[in-house]
């Protein structure tokens, strides 16, 4: 087993374990912290694929900004077991069925995809480097990129409008 493989297995197990812990932990703050661990594991996966830019942007945007805002809200709401709303038994069952159905669809879709024949380019892939990524974004995918930036802009304007309302 090479060092990369070892890291891959370690990170995968860490990511899955933290994801499960995120779902099952009682305290919402712990959930958020476990989710941050998941992001970390995924970011290191990106580094293994030589996609440093993606890795660091994943960290900055998700772990560094969005999760901090989540933490803000959760810490200020003072959630604990007493204030948790009563959960309907049927709600839980439908949740399990819904999640199971989603997993079934995903497995069915990915089963026949040719993803198994592809080999991940660890340590040597060039596409994740910032230069190539920039070229791809601003040449091939410039229209989707611009559309998404307009979307962001409209979201920003929306927040300002909501924030301004007295």
């Amino acid at each position: 087993m090479s060092a990369t493989q070892f890291l891959f297995w370690f990170l995968s197990i860490l990511a899955l374990f933290s994801a499960i812990m995120m779902v099952v932990s009682k305290s919402p703050v712990h959930s958020v912290l476990w989710l941050i661990v998941v992001f970390f594991a995924i970011s290191v996966h990106y580094v293994l694929l030589n996609a440093q830019f993606l890795a660091i942007v994943n960290l900055i945007v998700y772990a560094g900004a969005i999760m901090v805002l989540f933490l803000f809200v959760i810490m200020l709401m003072n959630l604990n077991a007493e204030t948790e709303p009563l959960k309907n038994k049927w709600l839980k069952i439908t949740g399990v069925i819904g999640g199971g159905a989603l997993m079934l669809v995903l497995v069915a879709a990915l089963k026949d995809a040719d993803i198994r024949n592809r080999i991940a380019e660890t340590n040597k892939g060039e596409i994740g480097l910032i230069h190539n990524l920039g070229m791809a974004l601003f040449k091939e995918y410039v229209i989707p990129f611009e559309i998404s930036s307009v979307l962001f802009l409209s979201a920003m304007v929306g927040t300002v409008v909501i924030g301004k309302k007295e």
Partner: peptide, 24 residues
Amino acid sequence: VNIGILYIFGVVSMGVYGVMIGGW
């Protein structure tokens, strides 16, 4: 690394957690 400055940025944005976790 070819993302030098962004790396600093990423790590600094992680620094928030030290403050937040400690405070909470």
